[in-house]
Design a binder for these strands. Structure first.
Length: 498
RNA sequence: GGGUGCGUAGCUCAGUCGGUAGAGCAGCGGCCUUUUAAGCCAUUGGUCGAAGGUUCGAAUCCUUCCGCACUCACCA
């Protein structure tokens, strides 16, 4: 076949033919290993010591500038790019002929001498060239001059679907995920340093609980039983506190069968942690320290996000829901009844559902009128009991409120925590209440988990528990405004591949 | 789920009033031993997201569908 048409199909064919030619020439297009002595970045950073020395580098050919009997090319490895100078005289007739068959996207190893070109760019002057992997599917071609990128690979759909291409041609994407790993590592260290035990609990659960959300359902064949992908790991971590572990944490991949948008992906990562003998006040300090630690790690206590300057250096504000309602809406939530809320909504032209209960009114009005005001890190404390079935009643005595806080930054929720309910009688009643709601058709109400109740009946010490939306933390500290940009493979509708 | 926008070559994009599809890069064939968005010459490549409809004629207008983005709603 000698087609020269540049349809994708023909390009694939042409490159397969190149593989055959390369084999005929006696070269192996897919060898097993290669000894790399230097990463590109090391060569660039240590030019003075490496000048005139021989190094071996390996990576992907990102561009090639052929000039007859010699060529320049750029090689990209995990940490950067370095220029190669490849001349027929230096690598020999056969190798140069093989090099002529190479394409952008091929992976090669080069042994050569470190030098500078007359324009001053550090370059490896090849003394031998080894093909390590022949590419047959063309890469998007991205060019760059003086920091300006031309023909950037920008199609978001393609970038998310073919993340490997995105990572190859858009270096800043890789940076985000390197930062993500850095934060993950620091998070582990933060907990480990404080005596926490990292645990793993079931993702496949017979009952789902610990949050209000619709689950994904699957089926176990040999048990012949439906199982749910966890929406939270809370109830399992509490069982561990009952079991005598006093400080546990888990990076919990959770699955919620709900809408997707800029800040929601069907699977996401939460860090949940529980500590015996502490309450939510203790956990507020703990969470504040965590965020400050990460901010410091990332290099600045002032984080710019969505056009706001978030200041992590000051103590986080703490405001009760009652104070916030008073401050922004002049509503006295201690005195308001459901009817008062309905009247208020009518007066203020706020749409509402007459079926809303006290907690739902509070929740909806909070989301609409108060959340947007919470830019600097703010702990909102003391939530209505009806929307917090796992939290202990407020020790100050108002039965309608529980000891719960959420951390808001830049109008988004980052953490949710309780003085965990450990009164088994109260807990049973509240989960029975959730179950009634569920039976009545609220598919986000929590299922009744008898074994969890029995664990609480066995006795759970006073416990503080927190869940942190880890992906959002990553977004905040990497400046990303879409969760898709902090997930390597965000959920997408499946595409038809030929 | 609603609204808005987008979908044209492997990639990035043009395409006027409805008149039968263009560029750059990549590819293919040449020239070229310090280039770097390499250059020069030559050249190929299209189910215009899909299906219907209107029309003598549709990338263009209409309808439906698919995908994505943004946004609102829902959702911790």
């Amino acid at each position: 076949m000698n087609e020269t048409h540049s349809t994708l199909e023909n390009i694939l064919e042409q490159r397969k033919e190149k593989i055959a030619k390369i084999k005929e020439m006696g070269f192996e297009p897919f060898p097993y290993s290669y000894t790399v002595t230097h990463k590109s970045k090391v060569v660039l950073d240590n030019y003075d010591e490496l000048e005139e020395k021989t190094v071996s580098v390996a990576g992907r050919l990102m561009n090639i500038r052929r000039m007859g009997k010699a060529s320049f090319a750029h090689l990209q490895d995990a940490e950067g790019r370095i220029q190669l100078y490849i001349s027929k005289n230096d690598i020999g007739e056969e190798s140069y002929a093989m090099f002529k068959l190479l394409d952008i996207g091929d992976i090669i190893g080069v042994e050569g001498i470190v030098m500078k070109t007359r324009t001053g760019e550090t370059t490896v002057k090849a003394t031998s060239l080894t093909l390590l992997t022949k590419n047959i599917r063309p890469l998007p071609i991205v060019k760059e001059k003086d920091g300006v990128v031309y023909d950037a690979f920008t199609d978001k759909e393609l970038r998310y679907r073919k993340r490997y291409l995105d990572l190859i041609v858009n270096p800043e994407v890789k940076d985000t995920f390197v930062k993500r790993a850095t934060i993950t590592r620091a998070t582990r260290k933060f907990f480990d340093d404080r005596g926490y035990l990292e645990v793993e609990t079931p993702i496949l659960q017979a009952l789902y609980g610990g949050a209000n959300a619709r689950p994904f359902v699957t089926h176990h064949n040999s048990l012949d039983q439906d199982l749910y992908l966890r929406i939270a790991d809370e109830l399992y971590l509490k069982r561990l506190i009952v079991g005598g572990f006093e400080k546990v944490y888990e990076f919990s991949r959770n699955f919620r069968n709900e809408g997707m948008d800029r800040s929601h992906n069907p699977e996401f990562t939460a860090i949940e942690f529980y500590e015996a003998y502490v309450d939510y006040f203790y956990m507020m300090d703990f969470v504040e320290e965590y965020f400050k630690t990460i901010a410091e790690l990332m290099g600045s206590m002032i984080v710019e996000y969505r056009g706001e300057k978030i200041d992590f250096s000051k103590p986080f504000e703490r405001k009760s829901m009652a104070d916030l309602f008073d401050e922004y809406l002049k509503i006295d939530i201690a005195a308001f009844t459901e009817k008062d809320f309905a009247d208020w909504c009518q007066k203020n032209k706020k749409e509402f559902d007459p079926k809303w209960n006290y907690g739902q009114f509070l929740d909806k009005l909070f989301d609409e009128y108060i959340e947007p005001k919470l830019i600097q890190p703010t702990f909102v404390i003391d939530y209505p009991k009806v929307i917090s079935p796992l939290a202990k009643v407020d020790r100050k005595g108002d039965e309608r409120f529980v000891e719960r806080f959420e951390l808001f930054i830049c109008s988004s929720e980052y953490a949710n925590a309780f003085s965990e309910l450990n009164d088994p009688i109260d807990q049973r009643e509240r989960l029975e209440g959730q179950d009634r709601l569920r039976v009545e058709g609220d598919d986000e109400a929590q299922a009744f988990d008898e074994d969890f109740i029995q664990a609480i009946e066995t006795g759970m010490p006073p416990t503080g528990g927190v869940g942190i939306g880890f992906d959002r933390v990553i977004m905040l500290f990497t400046g990303q405004t879409s969760i898709k940009d902090v997930l390597l493979f965000p959920a997408m509708r499946s595409e038809k591949l030929s």
